[in-house]
Design a protein around this nucleic acid. Sequence first.
DNA 1: GTCTATAGTGCGATAGAC
DNA 2: GTCTATCGCACTATAGAC
Lengths: 189, 189
Amino acid sequence: MRWEPGTPRRLQEAALRLFATRGFEQTTAGDIADAAGVTERTFYRHFTDKREVLFFGQESLLDAFLTGVTSAPAAASPLEIVAAALHSAASFFPDERRSFARTRASIIEHNPALQEREQHKLSNIAAQVATALRERGVAEPAATLAAQTGSTVFHIAFAQWIKPGEHRELADIAADVFAQLETLISAPA
Amino acid sequence: MRWEPGTPRRLQEAALRLFATRGFEQTTAGDIADAAGVTERTFYRHFTDKREVLFFGQESLLDAFLTGVTSAPAAASPLEIVAAALHSAASFFPDERRSFARTRASIIEHNPALQEREQHKLSNIAAQVATALRERGVAEPAATLAAQTGSTVFHIAFAQWIKPGEHRELADIAADVFAQLETLISAPA
DNA sequence: GTCTATAGTGCGATAGAC
DNA sequence: GTCTATCGCACTATAGAC
């Protein structure tokens, strides 16, 4: 075999290591490629830009959300559908991933450009969930409202999930946050 | 006088014109600088990067949100505070700005990198509103939840405000969307 | 794989305002 | 004289074109 398999994975691992030690800006695409034993050109064949290497493997998160939407019972309210999507998405972050997620989050936290990309990805997921809701007959602006709200809950729950000392499962945290949202909005002033 | 005043404004106007006709990627920082009668280096003294030129003048939007938060009555619920912030922010987009907002939005719509920046700005505002809520005694995760929800409502309302044929004021649209959110979440399944 | 345009930074020089 | 905006040039890294 001419190349080692799993080049994207190796690039991601190398990138994570280098970003964590040296910082994102202080690491060039060439550095990452070298560490993974390929050329800079190869790095850019796998990732459209330097930031994208941190998002490898996240494609299936969207699928998880969408599967949750489509598999919700026909009688479910928009909010119930979103809750189902949230639950489905949460199962894509089992406890084994927590350590990786923490390292990754700390890298992103220290770089605005990476935060932009992360928010954009999440925003895209929300937009697709909104589309899926519309396909289930939910009208606008309810569809976008529900999808964005779900994205917000997910984001908050995820941030809690990776906090030091936190051991609960993501799905449980998400359910808690979701309940708090309902209290917040439904509660009388 | 050696330099014309208002260099940032002129750069923004030139950029808007060029981006709208030629496209964002097809316009170099040098092109914009030339059109505004300065050098490329001067462009970068006013804006940290090429995208930032589209966000000049938006600094005060954050202030509007924050003013809304702090000026809400002491007895207001988190959601009522957010509604006040929303109303305050809406007043920063009088009808005269609609045309500019439409041009700007159409440029951003056609470029992912600009969408990232836009989302990041909005996300920053939400984060600061959350901080302001915390300073008013709202606990987490309610503060972040309320702030993010407000940001979502604003975003949806703004998108509607700039739609062709839409003539209502932003504040009215925002109030509508806000009401829909309450229905969506409080409604029984 | 190589070649190149462009983004973005660092720094010294200059020109006017005060 | 100081302060600030501009210029001009050299430079690296990204990312796309060939």
